[in-house]
Design a protein around this nucleic acid. Structure first.
Lengths: 167, 167
DNA sequence: CTTCCTGCAAAGGCTTTGCAAAGCT
DNA sequence: AGCTTTGCAAAGCCTTTGCAGGAAG
């Protein structure tokens, strides 16, 4: 089992590789490429960590190269996911979808502190294998999974006297 | 690893035990007991399987004993969860919260067919233990988790020629 | 020039909240 | 009585959708 190093930011070349990959998917669908969509993709790929749709809208604007309306971002996101650039994550957040980069990145799951919101990404091959056993036993072909461990981190527990009572 | 038998319906005595437990929690919070809340609790406990807030509102009404406004059900649900009668489930459903009975019921996780919606409940002690290892390694104290495996079931794959193309 | 994409505004669906009336202790 | 709970309606959020103008091929 290991903790994932914070995902390093993609360099410019990798981002362009991802955009090219996206546009290939776009063509395969008989759609047209678009500079706005590519700007959204670049902003999303530049983002480190988890982000909300709003975050992404802001990032695109701050990127300065283009502006994307929220509705457009909502329309573009499913395609970025299908192309493998992003993936939906942090399912337990009940206040809007969260995404994170999936392109050129290892699979991982999350450990979330319900007190301070800290998120630790971990990778545990043994669990992945056992999941396959479960799927096999019940005749399922797995396409994805969500596994989130919720609890309190060491810091929150030690500063608990007052902090824990407050929450 | 084992598949969970469909959760047997709670008998009348168990339901009353649960309601009594709920009211004890209510008193501990310095709140007042209420017949509407108890009616919601009974309807929820009578429900087999997973249900939405709307389902529950309907169940209460069809129970005939009382009527609960949706807003009231939304207000009551967190208390039923805190008292351990229910738990939030099927986090990957992005169209509204789902609940299921937790009172006098074993822990389990879900295998979900993304094609037909079938949900299989399984229990796998080995995975549970490995989760504890993860928590320990990162200094977390786990309070809950959810683990959902998404894929396609055998039936959907075999009737795939046409069906899979449609979805 | 035909088809797709985008921005805008409006609508949708789930959930929360303010308030006055009703319920519990 | 005094505080909680409830119903109702309105508001809040996130997300989706219809439409007209603009971009892409």
């Amino acid at each position: 089992m290991r903790r994932l190093h914070r995902a390093p930011a993609l360099d410019a070349a990798a981002i362009e590789r991802a955009v090219e990959h996206l546009n290939q998917t776009v063509r395969e669908h008989g759609l047209k490429t678009s500079s706005v969509r590519n700007a959204v993709a670049r902003a999303a790929l530049r983002h480190q960590g988890h982000f909300s749709v709003d975050d992404l809208v802001r990032d695109v604007r701050e990127g300065g190269l283009a502006d994307a309306h929220p509705a457009t971002v909502y329309r573009v996101l499913p395609l970025l996911v299908e192309a493998g650039l992003l993936q939906v994550t942090l399912m337990s957040a009940r206040d809007g979808a969260r995404y994170e980069r999936a392109f050129e990145r290892e699979h991982h799951d999350h450990l979330i502190c319900t007190s301070c919101g800290k998120v630790v990404e971990f990778q545990f091959e043994a669990i992945e294998l056992l999941q396959l056993d479960v799927a096999k036993k019940f005749g399922f072909h797995l396409t994805s999974h969500f596994h989130e461990l919720l609890g309190t981190c060491k810091e929150c527990r030690s500063s608990s006297g007052a902090a824990a009572a407050g929450r």
